[in-house]
Design a protein around this nucleic acid. Structure first.
Lengths: 347, 347
DNA sequence: GTGAAAGCGCTAACAT
DNA sequence: ATGTTAGCGCTTTCAC
C-alpha cells in the first residue's frame, strides 16, 4: 500500500479573470483593466464585469499581478522584533497609514537571522513587496548596499548615519537629550549619570552629544565615570545603573538613553531600596506606553513614534510614485514629558 | 516637453533561473529542481548550479514559485492590531516557531477594515500564503466560512466557540478563572467583583463561568451587581471598576477578565485614593509583560502566550502537510502568578 | 538524470 | 474602448 504523499499543489478552486471574462462576455484583458484601475473602460462594460466578478466571488491574485509587473500593494517592513513598545508604536503608525492607502503589510523580523540581514533584504526586494521600510535599530549591517542597484524603493527609520542619501525619518535626538539634561540641571542636579544607547546607531550618539552639550553649556564639568555604556535594552539599563550607583560619588540623577533602559534603572534603584525620585531622579527617552505604567510614572522625552511610522509610509510612497525626485529626510520634534520620576536632589 | 511618467514596471534586474542555467550550462528546469528540493539531481550538476547561483546572487522569486504551484513558505496572520501585550506575545511565539521552520510571516491587521474581514480572509487565502493563523479576538464574523471550501489550511487562536471542528489553540480559561477566584476567597474575600471580557468570545464566557463556579463551590451567594460588563480593554476595565466601586456595599476585591482591564481597574482605584492591595485587591488574567510593570505588580493568571503562538504554527503546519488528518485542538494550562496586588480584606 | 514545453493568473504593449 | 498577444519566473508533467 502506497503511503499517502501530501499534495504540494495549492488549492486551485479560485476563480480567475478568465472566468469573469466568460461570464461577462468580454475579453479577459478588459477584466484586468477594470480591476487594475484603468480609466477608459465603458461604464456599462465595467458594471457588467464587476457584477460578474461579485457573483463569482472573484478576488485578484496578488502574486500573479505582481509577477506580471503590476503592483502588489504590499509594503515590507524589516524590524528586529515586535517585543518592545518602541517598535510596536511605530508599526502601529505604519499600519494606520498603510490602511489609508489601501496597502498591506508584510512583516519580517530579523532577530532570527542574525548576520543574514543583507541576504534577507535582497530576497525581499526581489519579491512581492512594492517597497521596504527598514526599522533596524539593533543591526549594523549596511542594508542599503544590499538593495539591488539602489533602485528599489525603501525608507530608513531612525538610521541616518548611513553615507548614502536615503530617504529617512527620525527625531531630534540631540535636542531631546539636551532638553532632558537641562531639565535635570534646572532641578538642581549636578552629578547626572548617563547610560548610552547602542552606539552604532546615530540616535544613540546624538543623544550622548546632546547630554554633553547641555552639561557644557551649563558649565558642569564632564565626569567620564558618569557615562556608562548601554544597549537600548532593559538589561543594559539595569547593568549601567549598577555601575553608576556603585560609584563613590553617586549621581543624584540618571538619564537613560531610552525608556527601556530607564525601566532597568528603576529596577536597580528599587532593588537597593532607593526611592524615586526622592533618592534618585530618573529620566528616559521615547515615551513608550510602558513609561506611564511604571511606578513612579517616568519622566521622559517623547518621540512621536506613531507619527514616525506614518511619515515613513508617506516617504516610501513618494519613492514608489516619483522615483525621480530626490530623497527626503524628515526629522520630527521631540518633547519633554514631565511625570513623577524626577525631583530636585536630596539635601 | 512631455511629463516624465513614472514607470510602473518593477525593477527587473534580478537574476532568474534562466541566468543561472546559462552560467551553469544546464537547462533551467534543472536549476528549478535544485532549488525546489528535488532529490534526484546529479551531485555534480547540483554543485555546479549552486555555485553559479551564488556567484550571480540568485534568489528565488517567491511569487513566481507560488504562482507556478509551489509553496510560498509564507504564513499569514490575521490579528486585530499590534497594540497590546496579549497579541504581541503570541505573535512573538508565532514568529519564533516560524523561524524554526524557515517560514516568513505576512501580517494583516483587521482593525482597519471593520466588517470586511470575511472578504479579507478570502483574499488572503486566494493569495500568497500557504496557511493562515486567525487571531481575531475582537471580531464576531465567522471567518471560517469565508475560507474557500474549507480546504485552505488555517488555525484558530483563542476562538473555540465556532461550530466547525477547526484546528485551534487556547488555554484553560475556566480553570484559570476558577483558580483566581478561589485564591481571593482563600484570602478571605467574600465580595468579589468581576468584570467580564468581550462576551462574544469563548474565553470570556469561560472565565465568567469559572468565576461563578468558584463562588458556588465555596457557597458564596452570587450577587449579580458584582458582575459588570467589560470588553477586554483598559477603558472597559476602568468603567467597570467605577461601577463596582460606586456600589453601596463595595467589593473588597476585583477580578478583571484580563490584565488590560485590570490596569484600568488600578487606574480607577488609584484615582480614588484607594490603596492596592490595602483597600482593594485586584487580580487579572493573561500575564502580559505590563502586568509586572505596574505598581503594585499585578497578581494574575498566566496564559502561556508565547507557547500558544508556537503551538498555533505547529498545528498549521500539520494542516498543510497532512490535510487528511483530523484537526486537533490543544488547550494549554494556565497558572496563577502571585505578585503584590492582592491581600486579605481590610478589617 | 535532464531537457522541452505547458501553464499558473495577471499586466501591458500592440493592435484594431 | 476593447481584443490579441507576449511574457513575468517558476513548477511540473512528459519525453528522452
Amino acid at each position: 500500500m502506497a503511503t499517502a504523499r501530501p499534495s504540494r499543489r495549492k488549492v486551485s478552486n479560485s476563480v480567475t479573470i478568465v472566468d469573469v471574462a466568460k461570464a461577462a462576455g468580454v475579453s479577459y484583458s478588459t477584466v484586468s483593466r477594470v480591476f487594475s484601475g484603468y480609466e477608459f473602460v465603458n461604464e456599462e462594460t465595467r458594471e457588467r464585469v464587476v457584477e460578474a466578478a461579485n457573483k463569482l466571488g472573484y478576488v485578484v491574485n496578488l502574486q500573479a499581478r505582481s509577477l506580471a509587473g503590476g503592483r502588489s500593494n504590499i509594503v515590507g517592513l524589516l524590524a528586529p522584533g515586535l517585543d518592545n513598545g518602541y517598535i510596536t508604536e511605530i508599526v502601529s503608525g505604519i499600519d494606520q497609514e498603510l490602511a489609508q492607502h489601501g496597502l498591506d503589510l508584510m512583516l519580517y523580523t530579523t532577530h532570527r537571522y542574525p548576520g543574514k540581514e543583507a541576504f534577507y533584504v535582497k530576497t525581499i526586494a526581489n519579491g512581492l513587496v512594492d517597497g521596504l521600510i527598514l526599522l533596524v535599530p539593533l543591526v549594523t549591517t549596511n542594508y542599503i548596499q544590499a538593495l539591488p542597484r539602489q533602485d528599489f524603493p525603501y525608507v530608513l527609520i531612525d538610521q541616518t548615519n548611513s553615507t548614502s542619501n536615503s530617504p529617512s525619518v527620525d527625531a531630534t535626538n540631540w535636542q531631546g537629550a539636551y532638553d532632558a539634561t537641562t531639565y535635570l540641571i534646572k532641578l538642581g542636579h549636578r552629578r547626572i549619570g548617563f547610560i548610552t544607547g547602542y552606539l552604532e546607531l546615530s540616535s544613540a550618539t546624538e543623544r550622548l552629544d546632546g547630554y554633553r552639550a547641555a552639561l557644557q553649556h551649563h558649565r558642569i564639568p564632564l565626569d567620564e565615570n558618569l557615562t556608562v555604556m548601554g544597549d537600548y535594552l532593559t538589561t543594559g539599563g539595569y547593568a549601567g545603573a549598577q555601575k553608576l550607583l556603585n560609584l563613590a560619588e553617586r549621581p543624584s540623577a540618571i538619564f537613560a538613553s531610552n525608556d527601556l533602559e530607564a525601566i532597568g534603572v528603576m529596577n536597580a534603584a528599587h532593588q537597593r531600596g532607593l526611592r524615586i525620585p526622592g533618592d534618585i531622579s530618573i529620566i528616559g527617552f521615547d515615551d513608550i506606553p510602558q513609561a506611564s505604567l511604571v511606578y513612579p510614572r517616568l519622566t521622559t522625552v517623547r518621540q512621536p513614534l506613531v507619527q514616525i511610522g506614518q511619515v515613513a509610509v508617506r516617504l516610501l510612497l513618494e519613492r514608489i510614485d516619483t522615483p525621480e525626485k530626490d530623497a527626503r529626510r524628515v526629522t520630527l520634534s521631540t518633547e519633554l514629558v514631565i511625570r513623577e520620576s524626577c525631583a530636585p536632589p536630596a539635601g
